[in-house]
Nucleic acid binder design. Sequence first.
DNA 1: AACCCATCTGCG
DNA 2: GCAGATGGGTTC
Length: 680
Amino acid sequence: MSDDDGTPEQGALLDLPPESRTVDGRGVTNPVARVMVDTPLPHLDRPFDYLVPPEHADNAVPGARVHVRFAGQERPAFVLERGSETDHPGTLTPIRRASSPVPVLTPTVLRLCRAVAERYAGTLMDVVRLAVPPRHASTEKSVLEKDPGDEGAAAVPSPGPPRADAWARYVGGPAFLGHLATGESPRAVWSALPGPMGPAVAAAARATRASGRGVLVVVPTTRQVDDVVAAIREELPDEPVARLVADDGPARRYRSFLRVLLGQARVVVGTRAAAFAPVTELGLAVVLDDGDDRLEEPHAPYPHIRQVLAMRADLERAALLIGGYARSVEAQLLLEQGWARPVQAERAVVREATPRVVAPSEVDLAREGPAAAARIPRPAWETARRALEHGPVLVQVARGGYLPAVACARCREPARCVTCHGPLRLDRQGAPPACGWCGRHAVDFACPECGGISLRWVRVGSDRTAEELGRAFPSVPVVVSGASASHGVVETVDETPRLVVATPGAEPVAAGGYVAALLLDASVTTARPELWASAEALRRWLGAAALVRARAEGGTVMLLGRPAPVPAQALVRWDPAGFAARELAERAELSFPPAVRLAALQGPRPAVRSLLRHLGQIPEMEVLGPVDLADQGDDVRALVRTPRRVGGELTRALVRASAVRSARKEPGTVRVRVDPNDLW
DNA sequence: AACCCATCTGCG
DNA sequence: GCAGATGGGTTC
């Protein structure tokens, strides 16, 4: 592979074999350190050679953090390797500082970072920054003093044979466990039945540990981390488990990281950043609820954790388990490629384990009485009333707050703040409308379109819903759970009759399961124009419905509010697999990821244009745009797509083009996102 | 951000 | 003919 740009003279120079020379170490063995310098410039994302001075010979080991003088500045860097030769013609600058010998960037993680950088058209340093937490010196001191080296995995007795109960209901489940226990590396997409997923994950962890290998579990939220950790502690009481969550603060985060690095914990459970944890001899990687957008890393190069773990499974020959009540299109693709196998229950078992789901049509509702268009129509009230005789009832509401969106009562134009044009909302009954962006109160609302002075609701939030339900069932306690609720997210409720109003993802777990769930405002999600809207809606509904009792125990789910028919039918039939297959076929039809490889380039128009120019020609590449982005100031966005088969060429070309732009100091930054979930 | 080096410029 | 300015490219 040769670069075909540049003059022949340059080509001739570049084709010369790099002239290598041995460096005099003045007593230091392997005095040359190849390091990656922490710089934001893409064209400098490659190793540089430095001299190891005697005083740093013991600390500047491969994988260690050091500080070097680079382009006139002192920058942090990672040692990749030590050697005796360099091909740099000039003199080597000595490493300035090497304050710790801990090899925080292991060869295995480095290889993973390289693969992720390549897949997402990012720089290696950007990925390494995601993978290695910042050092915390005092924590490191205390952990290293406590560790004589023998306190780790060796002391932990290997668990007995796997207990198969949690997997018995799934076709391929017991076999999956068996393969893990014998040291093999199966790859599975698991369609979980209602109920907690923790016990099954714990059983898989136990089987993997029985083979002597390590386990890594990544989930969207801290709450789910704690659920899985609790389940693993129950299944494996003697097993040290590392909990790796970002909101732990630097000291605890670094302590957990070091325990993993030193092999003191071979089982790791965490959020996003844990996907890069240096687990000793990884045997199984698990990701739960992989459709949750919190598994998409918000920092460049924006890798998706499902993808990172799939790459890890390949590179480290580990097993992979992608599990959830819903099935993502990306998981569906892995199945259709034959890379992973499904683990799911037979139709009859699914039917028995899931609640009865009804999605009454407008015709159905009209038959029931005049208030068919009501947000909570009469059959829903009746379902709730009957269910409350036996236990708790869940009400899923799309939005938190009271009336989170209001409009002019006369012309229906959305009500906006006079100062900043943010959307107006009501925070409680009788309060003046307030702006959702700047917080200013709109004292005298007057519609700029028609002059109307009264407001009507467009969206009803969980507080207002709770108020309505409380009036209708005065003797039943009502709890509200959600990020914006006054008591925040409620974790659990007991089995006594109670109304639980929650936003998606914030549903408390009910002891014994909810008797019924009402899923309101179905169209709020399904009517969104984004491609993922119906998949996201189904994921949210299944998440709530999975907390409801089985139909044999009277469990009922009612889907309300004009849902789109395809995801609604998938919920009624509890068929996440069929839905994912249909969804993937549609993506293929439209040439969208994951059916094709697509990169979104966002930035100022000249910058995006120039990046596109530097991109060159890639076979079958298609460019869409650039188009203006209404809500992003002057930014424009272009989409570039190729068949998946040549995706590697696309990402390599993007890296090259970004490097050229940065080397030439071209103005403006372009954000490159490969296979983004949403297009902003 | 600092450095190197090639080229330019103003004065002899 | 040459010191000092200017600018573009590199960064070990």
